[in-house]
Simulated scan of single mutants.
Amino acid sequence: MDIRQLRYFQEIVAQGSLTRAAESLHVAQPALSLHLKNMEEQLGTRLLTRSRSGVTPTEAGDLLLQRARTILEDLARTEDDIRNLEADPSGVVRIGLPGTISATVSLPLILAARERFPRITLNIREAMSGFVGDWLSEGKVDLAVLYSRSKDKRILSELLLEEELVVLWPGEAGCLPVMSLGDLEKVPMVLPSGAHGLRVLIDSEFQALGFAPEIAMEIDSFNNIKRLVAAGFGPSILPLYAVTEEVAAGTLCVSRIAAPGLWRGAHLMSPGGRPVTRAVEAVHTVLRDVILDLRDSGAWAASRPPQ
């Protein structure tokens, strides 16, 4: 096998389809199929299972994919280090962020990275926390900021801040400045679905009080949650920084949760146990600095250092 075959195989698995991989790689599909056939013959085993929905790696394919990622990342780091021994780091750095964090972090991160490392290109991908965590474990992103530590023991994690969660109500109805979570028992609420990290936290807090949340509606978009609360479908629980504009405009009212309150952490995560490029190391530092500055300046509203 050679490096090109490893790159081709990695892209086939990422795309889940020979056709899509051929388009992404700008390679004729018959040529890509031949490369795959040659690899399977060299290794003496099938690497992919084919179905109508596409291709998935076999057990041997999964092993090859893991090793291929390590080899290709090590090669990229080596090439980058040699090219940039006397220059600023360069290359593409992929960052995974949940949508709410991205709304706060992306612009100041892009501006800071451009100023400090103009030869680095950022590729920022947004999704729910669970998807972002999977991307990091699978090597599809280089860095991530998530609300909980990864279950993958290979992932390094640093808790940078804690953000306050509050109860939302329609603005015209008014609300108590402070309330307990127990006051929400049997109150129909607008909440994210069970797959959402915030919902997992809410369910856990309610369970500790001896009840489950009453559901009026489940929806994973924070913007839609805010609209539904404002329209009177029921209260919700979101980070305070995510609703500051609506509170200022009077469309939403917030109740803080009685001491000790309800907080969740933001963790900066990076892969451990495998080499990373100088560009990734540089962006890791910039991303950390940006988040700490947002916390300490108050731009990340209602956040605090880890307690």
Rank of each mutant, 00 (worst) to 15 (best):
Phe9Glu: 02
Phe9Cys: 01
Gln15Tyr: 12
Gln15Phe: 06
His26Lys: 11
Ala31Cys: 01
Leu32Thr: 08
Leu32Gly: 09
Leu32His: 06
His35Gly: 00
Lys37Asn: 10
Lys37His: 14
Glu41Val: 14
Leu43Val: 00
Arg46Asp: 04
Arg50Gly: 00
Gly54Ile: 00
Gly54Ser: 01
Pro57Met: 03
Ala60Thr: 01
Ala60Gln: 01
Leu63Thr: 04
Leu63Gly: 05
Arg67Cys: 05
Arg69Glu: 07
Ile71Lys: 12
Ile71Leu: 15
Ile82Gly: 06
Arg83Lys: 12
Arg83Asn: 06
Ala87Leu: 05
Pro89Gln: 10
Ser90Pro: 03
Val92Asn: 14
Arg94Trp: 09
Arg94Ile: 08
Arg94Asn: 14
Arg94Val: 09
Gly96Arg: 05
Leu97Val: 13
Ser102Glu: 02
Val105Phe: 04
Ala112Pro: 00
Ala113Trp: 00
Arg114Glu: 15
Pro118Glu: 09
Arg125Tyr: 12
Glu126Val: 15
Asp134Ala: 14
Trp135Thr: 09
Leu136Ser: 00
Asp142Val: 11
Lys153Ile: 07
Leu159Asn: 10
Leu161Pro: 01
Glu164Ile: 10
Leu168Ala: 08
Trp169Gly: 01
Trp169Ala: 04
Val190Tyr: 03
Phe211Gln: 09
Pro213Phe: 15
Glu218Cys: 08
Asp220Phe: 04
Leu240Tyr: 11
Val243Pro: 07
Glu245Ala: 07
Glu245Ser: 08
Glu246Val: 05
Ala249Glu: 06
Pro260Lys: 05
Leu262Met: 12
Leu268Ile: 14
Leu268Cys: 14
His284Met: 05
His284Tyr: 13
Asp289His: 07
Val290Asn: 02
Ala299His: 06
Pro305Tyr: 13
Pro305Ser: 15
Gln307Ile: 01
Gln307Gly: 07
